[in-house]
Design a protein around this nucleic acid. Structure first.
Lengths: 324, 324
DNA sequence: ACCCAGTGTGTAAACGTTTACACATTTTGA
DNA sequence: TCAAAATGTGTAAACGTTTACACACTGGGT
């Protein structure tokens, strides 16, 4: 068993209040007491118990990060940024994978409340409105996605604009029929679909189907194969995330290289290979690190001042034009 | 403020002990009491305070995951597996990025001890031996890397054997001079270097330099360019991680396509593009999910029974032969 | 000589649980 | 019929902090 503040007090020959004050560095302390306490702390290798601290303070130095898939490079980049900012402010990060499942999301939000975390960063699933008002939650900042009808701190990317930009870029080529592959269930996907559709207004190129599948590589590969057989006239594809794009690209390499050679493939998220395949593929690069940092910063501010006015930050994706 | 067990007791017309017993489901409780308590819990929307629980129990339902970079796909796959297992056992995961910095590692280990986590999963940096015995740590399982001279639970991959296998595969081709790019500072890197070197014993092909750099994409690109200019005779490269490989590959696309065309590039970690570039590249696929699950399982067992005998699990990497 | 502000320290309550112990009542078994 | 065991409940202590409050002492200004 490790030592408690009592042991330190005993050793330093003072009361636990004095020890606590020395540790916290506030209140009046004589030099003599300070030195004795510091010596005792060192000798015993005393480390304060954060659980006790949290209980007393009614708030811990932990923040919760609730996201749908830490293996998605977009989210892992965000996690990294969040962790950095948190550590800089003396917080640690509790990570929760929802897999886009509202049940799991609700479970985690409750859990985090029970853990008395100082704040929560959440990229909500479609159906999360309910879980949000059902209980008294700690300070909360949304990232990547918003919740309809809720006025909350948030940091998102203008997905509609980005998808519009990306699709228009494709439209500038001479493709006849463009299909779109998007993630299922997410706010993000809907926004991108809107932008995708908007790009066709007044354009000659015809839009083919809009496909929504769970955001995994295998799903991207599967749906791409399906499109290739069901809609043989499709000669261009917009892909809504690195994971889906990687899967779709693999399929295209095998079963639709003509499409790739004609530059008919673009996607979100700048996967590493996009720059070195031939021809290289144009992408929307999402500022994931900036997003993660902004969201974490916002949360820190919200924790310090719960009454501050709501911030809704919108970032823009960058179109990186490639294609040989 | 949310409700406490006291409020529930008041509402249910019993003592807090009874409420606690109903919630824990142990001890003798009458049906009447149980129903009243359950009703009160529901009406008040009561949720237990885990911080108080942890303080009382001297152990929380949180485990710490200490790794060097969550953006590294190898580690993010592990994180995901760990999180899954943890949640299944009713735990949450506190994530800590060390960036291979022993100072940060030491800081996090102390922090996790202060948080009274139930256990720790650690992929140690080179210099972590000290921080490991300096304090009384919670149950600990090492993953991906071991610590020399310590007999601790661990799950690692046989990196020497894997590197040997991978290099031999390259040796079967007709390359003249093979360079190796490895991560810096890590136990893993040393083991892979050993295997790399061992492959040349009795072989005709000459080994060129062994390069060690921090495991980031940009570093891989940089060092690859350096090799190309400093050792123009190098006609094959072994790369020690997906991150380094992606960087190195990008450079090679531009400045050394002949090397790629001759199949002179192999790496660890099966990055997504390895299968669809031309010619496709052979890799060692590391069983990251298996590793993460095994490590988390081991930790769960260690938490339940601190006296059980130490397990050192060694997994094998799979050589995936590609190349056109 | 007295008061007040500024220092320095200790005591004890509080945070929300779990649980050992005590006590009361009921059931069981001889 | 009575002891022992089983059942049900409450009281209070403990976990390790922080901090309000009380108290004591110092020194300076009147």
């Amino acid at each position: 068993m490790s030592h408690s503040i009592k042991d330190v007090a005993l050793r330093a020959g003072c009361s636990i209040a004095t020890v606590s004050r020395v540790l916290a560095g506030k209140g009046y302390i004589s030099d003599e007491a300070r030195q004795k306490v510091e010596a005792a702390v060192k000798e015993l290798g005393y480390r304060p118990n954060r659980v006790a601290r949290s209980l007393r303070a009614q708030r811990s130095r932990v923040i919760g990060l609730v996201l749908s898939d830490i293996c998605n490079p977009f989210f892992s980049e965000i996690s990294r940024a969040v962790e950095r900012v948190a550590v800089r402010h003396g917080y640690t990060v509790l990570i929760c994978n929802t897999d886009e499942d509202p049940k799991r999301e609700e479970h985690f939000l409750k859990l985090l409340e029970e853990e008395k975390v100082a704040g929560i960063l959440l990229s909500p699933t479609r159906a999360s409105a309910k879980s949000l008002d059902s209980s008294i939650l700690p300070p909360l900042v949304l990232f990547d996605r918003k919740v309809a009808g809720k006025h909350l701190d948030s940091v998102v990317i203008d997905n509609e604009e980005a998808a519009l930009k990306l699709t228009r870029h494709l439209l500038a080529g001479k493709h006849q029929k463009i299909a779109g592959i998007f993630g299922a269930k997410s706010y993000t996907a809907s926004a991108r679909i809107k932008g995708f559709q908007a790009a066709f207004i007044g354009a000659e190129t015809r839009m083919a189907g809009i496909y929504q599948v769970p955001a995994f590589e295998a799903e991207g590969a599967r749906i791409m194969a399906e499109i290739l057989t069901n809609e043989p006239l499709v000669d261009a594809v917009v892909c809504s995330s690195a994971l889906l794009a990687t899967g779709a690209y693999t399929t295209l390499r095998q079963k639709g290289p003509h499409l790739l050679e004609a530059g008919g493939f673009v996607c979100f998220d700048d996967p590493s290979w996009a720059s070195f395949v031939e021809p290289s593929v144009s992408v929307i690069r999402q500022p994931a690190t900036t997003l993660g940092e902004a969201a974490a910063d916002l949360l820190m501010k919200r924790i310090v001042d719960p009454t501050r006015s709501v911030s809704e930050i919108v970032l823009r994706g960058d179109l990186i034009e490639r294609g040989k």
